[in-house]
Amino acid sequence: MWKIIGTGITQAFNQRTIFRKLSFEIKSGESLVLVGPNGSGKTTLIRIVCNLLHPIEGKVEFYYGNETKMAGQLYSSIGMVGPYLQLYNNLTAFENYAFFRKIRGLNVDHGHFKILMKKFGLAGREFDELRTYSSGMLQRMKYVCALLHSPPILILDEPVSNLDESGERIIYDVMEEQKRSNILIFATNNPEEIKFGDKKIRLAV
């Protein structure tokens, strides 16, 4: 059972406070949605949760059972998709998959790769360089790489950006499945997606 506790998180850029004293708690089987207008700090909060950014105050702690997990122990536990997280465009889909599997200490599994590519509608493009993919296909590929280790914590920023209707349906299924027994944190303003959140943080400009 995983648990994430954020306490008193404050962030500011150039003396402009983005949010102040934010706290939340989420555990396996729950989902948290961050909503708010552009510039309200949704992405900033997501980046803080992922340890890509340090808040000026407060902290985010990860627990597995009663054991605290430090940032360096989370590489195999977090999967993330966001507009600012890109894949290696001059490598093929398979090479990206193989790199992200190996770096997480997992063996490269061709069968698993094919299943994931089929699930996200990318079958037949396994050995093409990602620079030949459309933006929607790249978004789908980001999900392949974010889910290849079945992460107990999935963090999504604008989950369905660039996706067509069929892509959106696939992602909604992923989100539904993730929140059933794992942790799902996502930032959106799309009413279709907000309903996937059990808990909500509303940020204001």
């Binding site: 992922c50 590489y75 977090i78 600012y84 997280l85 894949l87 290696y88 465009n89």
Partner: peptide
């Protein structure tokens, strides 16, 4: 190529 953050996560 904006892959630095991706690498930081893994």
């Amino acid at each position: 190529q904006q892959t630095a953050d991706t690498l930081k996560l893994v």
